[in-house]
Design a protein around this nucleic acid. Structure first.
Length: 526
RNA sequence: GCGAGCGUAGCUCAGUGGUAGAGCUCCACCUUGCCAAGGUGGUUGUCGUGGGUUCAAAUCCCAUCGCUCGCUCCA
């Protein structure tokens, strides 16, 4: 089966069964925007609930945030997102690096050719990285959606729809730490819509202009602070147990791997086991300049292996940027650190300082910056570092849909074959958990009993009532919706209260009492 | 952004200048004692949209929107 065919078949099923519709289809559609139908919105809600439960509710060290989509424009200046669109950029077609056209010209003693709103590169401009002259023309990248706050469409009122949810966490960091009764290490999680005016949306819902993210910023101590407090920093070489409780001595690299393990465990819990995922470590060239390490969790979509989530160790870049732009201090006071520093004598402090200076200068950072950082540490203060697991909700929904899709050829007793389409969702994310059917609908007592059982179970999970057509047809309809079980009420139900529970994947049936059914489903849905 | 292909019922598609169709789905009733296949009846389309050519356009032309693929892009 060709890759193209796969995606078209999936898109067709998604539309036919009500998972995903094109946005504004009535008016011809709008590129890069998608709606989730009755089944799709349940699926997405289940994904988000599962994420929130795993990241926030079942931990003591992560709290939530629900920030606005439109924020102060200065946030995007501080984060670096504004630079890319404010100034025309040129790309090197050979080494694929991107530069601001004005800076490139200035560095090379050239003058950017300006004619009204359009700009052009002068002859002789070359790539600062590789020296190639194979550069694109300067282009503006309006990748953030612009809008105006207030009724006047004036640039002084311009604002942007957020291109990521994460910045709000940094911008509200001080308020959160003042109110949440958390101490570093701790995290702040947020889910919500983000917007990017993608040049070319592609691959069904994969690259959309309006999309949803599930992001965690997990704040940790700088390794130097860990060393002062614990006397040493646990690294990967120490083979720490990443599946157990986090340890105070962990350095940033261990935290990064801890979160990778956490995220993989979560994907497993919603039916995307590790063997369906790939970890891609960004290389030095690909890393953003501030990132220490970044790993992509990728899924093999029908159109290629693509990123579901990025987990980045971002150092203290973001908080420091906001500290610089806002003029407000972003450092935290760490009692344990202060106490540890107070126990050191002058000689030990000097030795520690020199060690840090040596490490920082080896990473091309200035000795002055290193000394200022250590001086703060001795006061018990630092700007927290961060590990950022950032996942795409819609991408994950698409991965789960792709992963769930299956076609099965069945052969009955008489040797007749028949094809069955099944969405094999994990019960925890399946839009409908249980179909409830009367075996036949023209027997009043049976029908009434089935309605009674449906009403009882519907309070517990999203259930679907279906009385139309032959029983087999009803099972098959539920298969396409990905409903893991169907309960059929028959004449025996009237005698002993048991129902037939039919399993989506095996098509096997068992007789259970309603309490037994509830217990079984509770266990498997999780 | 460039190039190519596509757009007809909810889905899959036929229809190349002359009355818009098929299969499946869906709905109602009947039938049906556990895996889509029985019976009867029924709903659904400005043929993506707009304009042009023509006595006449789903069909030819132009534009536009959307989808797919390749390049590009993906801070």
């Amino acid at each position: 089966m060709s890759k193209k065919l796969d995606m078209e078949i999936l898109a067709s099923l998604c539309k036919r069964r009500g998972f995903i519709f094109q946005s504004s289809e009535l008016y011809g559609g709008i590129n890069g925007f998608w709606d989730y139908g009755p089944l799709g919105c349940e699926l997405k809600r289940n994904i988000k609930n599962a994420w929130w439960k795993h990241i926030v509710r079942t931990r003591e060290d992560v709290v939530g945030l629900d920030a606005t989509i439109i924020m102060h424009p200065a946030i995007w200046k501080a984060s670096g997102h504004a630079d890319g669109f404010a100034d025309p950029m040129v790309d090197c077609k050979d080494c694929r690096k991107r530069f601001r056209a004005d800076q490139l010209c200035e560095e090379q003693g050239l003058e950017l050719i300006k004619d009204g709103k359009t700009v052009a590169l002068p002859d002789g401009a070359k790539c600062p990285a590789c020296g190639s002259r194979n550069l694109t023309a300067p282009r503006s990248f309006n990748l953030m959606f612009k809008t105006f706050v207030g009724p006047i469409e004036d640039d002084s009122n311009a604002a942007w729809l957020r291109p990521e949810t994460a910045q709000a966490i940094f911008a509200q960091f001080s308020n959160i730490i003042a109110t949440a009764r958390q101490k570093v290490p701790f995290g702040v999680a947020q889910m919500g819509k983000s917007f990017r005016n993608e040049i070319n949306p592609r691959n069904y819902t994969f690259r959309s202009r309006e999309f949803e993210q599930m992001e965690l910023e997990f704040f940790i101590r700088p390794d130097e602070a860990v060393e002062l407090i614990c006397g040493r920093v646990t690294t990967l070489a120490d083979k720490p147990d990443l599946t157990g409780e986090p340890q105070e001595s962990w350095g940033w690299e261990v935290w990064l791997h801890y979160w990778i393990e956490q995220r993989l465990a979560w994907y497993r819990s919603i039916g995307l086991p590790a063997e369906h995922l790939e970890l891609y470590w960004q290389t030095g060239d690909e890393l953003a300049h501030y990132a220490r390490a970044c790993v992509d969790i990728e899924y093999a979509f029908p159109f290629g292996v693509q990123e579901l989530e990025g987990i980045a160790a971002r150092g203290d870049f973001d908080l420091t940027q906001h500290q610089r732009h806002s003029g407000k201090q972003m450092d935290v006071f760490d009692e344990a650190l202060k106490q540890a520093a107070d126990k050191l004598d002058a000689a030990a402090k000097e030795a520690f300082t020199e060690k840090v200076v040596a490490e920082w200068t080896a990473r091309n950072q200035s000795p002055e910056a290193a000394r200022a950082f250590v001086a703060k540490l001795f006061e018990g203060k630092y700007v927290p570092h961060v590990v950022e697991p950032s996942a795409g909700t819609d991408r994950l929904a698409l991965a789960l849909l792709s992963n769930a899709y299956d076609e099965e050829t069945l052969t009955d007793d008489k040797g007749k074959t028949d094809q069955r389409t099944v969405m094999r969702f994990h019960p925890s994310i399946a839009p409908i958990k249980l179909g409830v059917f009367p075996l036949v609908k023209n027997k009043p007592e049976l029908y009434a009993k089935a309605r009674e059982i449906f009403a009882q179970l519907q309070r517990r999970w999203n259930c679907f009532w279906d009385e139309s057509g032959a029983i087999g047809r009803r099972y098959r309809r539920m298969d396409e919706a990905g409903t893991p079980w169907c309960a059929t009420v028959d004449f025996q139900t009237l005698e002993d209260g048991t129902v037939t529970l039919r399993d989506r994947d095996s098509m096997q049936q068992v007789r259970l009492s309603v309490p037994e059914l509830i217990q079984k489903l509770d266990t498997e849905i999780g």
